[in-house]
C-alpha cells in the first residue's frame, strides 16, 4: 500500500474553513497533511483520526512556529500567507482560536490583505486600460474577484460581531 499521495485542489480564500474541514476529513480517512504547495496538498499515511489539522493566515513568523510546537502542535507547511499545523488527537483538542475576538482579528487580517492586493490591481488595471498593452482587463478581473472575496470575508466578520454583542 502506498504511504504518500498528492492531491491537487483549489479553494477560494473565503473557503478556508471548508479547506480545513477537508483536511480533517482526510486525516479521519488515514491521510494527514505533510506539506503544502500551490493548490497542492501532500499527504502521508496515519492512523484514522490520529491527527487534527488547522490552518490560519499568519505572516511568516519563526517565533509563532516555536510557540505552536511548544504547545504540542507540529508545523505542516506554509503556502503564501497561510500556515498549516497538525496535532495528535491523543495530545488533546486542537484549536487556533478560542474566542470571538481572535476570530474577528483573523478575518481582519485576511480582509486587509485582500483590500491591499485588490486595490493595487484596480489601480494597475485602470492604468493599463489607457496603455497600448490592452491587458488592463486582467487586473480589473482580478480586482473584481478580490473585492468579492473581501465581501465574503466581511460577511463572516459581521456575523461574529453580531454575536459578540451578547457574549464573548
Amino acid at each position: 500500500m502506498e504511504s504518500r499521495k498528492t492531491i491537487r485542489k483549489w479553494f477560494w480564500v473565503w473557503e478556508f474553513e471548508k479547506e480545513e474541514d477537508w483536511l480533517n476529513e482526510m486525516a479521519m480517512n488515514g491521510w494527514v497533511l505533510e506539506n503544502v504547495g500551490w493548490c497542492t496538498y501532500h499527504f502521508v499515511r496515519c492512523e484514522p483520526g490520529e491527527y487534527s489539522v488547522r490552518l490560519e493566515m499568519h505572516p511568516y513568523d519563526e517565533s509563532y512556529k516555536a510557540f505552536m510546537e511548544e504547545t504540542g502542535a507540529e508545523y505542516a507547511g506554509r503556502m503564501m500567507m497561510w500556515v498549516y499545523f497538525r496535532k495528535k488527537t491523543a495530545n488533546g483538542p486542537f484549536d487556533l482560536f478560542s474566542d470571538i475576538d481572535s476570530r474577528i482579528s483573523h478575518l481582519d487580517k485576511i480582509g486587509k490583505l485582500l483590500a491591499i492586493i485588490g486595490g493595487a490591481n484596480l489601480l494597475i488595471g485602470i492604468m493599463n486600460t489607457f496603455s497600448p498593452s490592452r491587458l488592463g482587463w486582467i487586473n480589473l478581473l482580478v480586482a473584481t474577484l478580490l473585492m468579492y472575496a473581501l465581501g465574503r470575508i466581511h460577511g463572516k466578520k459581521e456575523a461574529l460581531e453580531k454575536e459578540r454583542l451578547l457574549h464573548e
Binding site: F67, P93, D95, L96, F97, S98, D99, D101, S102
Partner: peptide, 12 residues
C-alpha cells in the same frame, strides 16, 4: 471550562 487556543493566546 476555559481552554485557551494557541493562536488566541499568542495574539493576546
Amino acid at each position: 471550562r476555559v481552554r485557551l487556543a494557541a493562536g488566541t493566546l499568542y495574539g493576546a
